[in-house]
C-alpha cells in the first residue's frame, strides 16, 4: 500500500470520527431524523429509482432494436 493511500485512509477515518462525534454532540442535530433520511434516500434510490430507470432504458432500447432489426441483439436488463 502506497503512502498516499495510507494517508487517504487515515484522513478518511479522521473525517468519519469527526462526523460521528459531531452528529452525537451537536444540539442542533435531530439524530433520529438524520438516520431516517439517510435510510430513506438509500432505499428509495436502490429499490425504486434505479429499477425504474433501468426498466425505462431497457424498454427504450428494445423499442429501438425492434425498429432496426439489422442491429446487434438487444440488451437485457439495464
Amino acid at each position: 500500500m502506497t503512502r498516499v493511500r495510507t494517508l487517504l485512509i487515515v484522513a478518511g477515518v479522521a473525517g468519519l470520527v469527526h462526523a460521528v462525534l459531531g452528529l452525537l454532540t451537536d444540539p442542533d442535530i435531530r439524530l433520529a431524523g438524520v438516520l431516517i433520511f439517510l435510510a430513506v434516500v438509500l432505499v428509495a434510490h436502490d429499490a425504486l429509482w434505479m429499477p425504474a430507470l433501468l426498466a425505462v432504458t431497457t424498454l427504450v432500447a428494445r423499442m429501438r432494436n425492434r425498429k432496426t432489426p439489422e442491429s446487434t441483439p438487444g440488451p437485457g436488463n439495464g
Partner: peptide
C-alpha cells in the same frame, strides 16, 4: 455533519 461523513467515507473509498 453529513458533509464530513461523506468526505471521510469518500477518502477511504479512494484509498
Amino acid at each position: 455533519w453529513i458533509g464530513w461523513l461523506l468526505i471521510g467515507a469518500m477518502l477511504i473509498h479512494v484509498g
